[in-house]
């Protein structure tokens, strides 16, 4: 078994413009995903949108700079994540296809394997 992170990306403006009914359908989609994932689900959260983010970087002298906003300024920002445990990528792909972000063209998901130490 291996761990995978599913990173959910999308256009925050479009998420903000969603109606109450759309959110209900969206959340039902996530509930269905979690139910289908079963014991493979380890963790998962929705994140506040990018304008609430705070980023830290160090300069060459080692001074730490705190900035307002996400680390990477992109139109599509990180909106949430899941941490899953699965046997292989095909298993994760099958699950990820259920995610409601794939009902829209502005959003999508990225699957990243988690590095296993030892």
């Amino acid at each position: 078994m291996a761990k995978y992170m599913i990173l959910i990306y999308g256009d925050a403006e479009q998420w903000d413009a969603m109606t109450e009914e759309q959110w209900q359908a969206h959340n039902a989609g996530h509930a269905a995903f979690v139910a289908k994932a079963g014991i493979r689900f380890l963790d998962g959260q929705q994140l506040e949108t990018a304008p609430t983010a705070t980023s830290l970087r160090a300069d060459a002298a080692g001074r730490i700079h705190i900035t307002d906003g996400p680390f990477l300024e992109t139109k599509e920002g990180l909106g949430g994540y899941y941490l899953l445990e699965a046997a292989d990528l095909d298993e994760v792909l099958e699950l990820a296809k259920l995610l409601p972000e794939l009902n829209y063209t502005h959003s999508g998901v990225e699957i990243r394997p988690v590095v296993e130490h030892g």
Partner: peptide, 14 residues
């Protein structure tokens, strides 16, 4: 190897 793409013939649905 790292993403664990399986060494497998896909099932009938795929």
């Amino acid at each position: 190897a790292a993403a664990r793409i399986p060494y497998r013939v896909p099932g009938p649905d795929q």
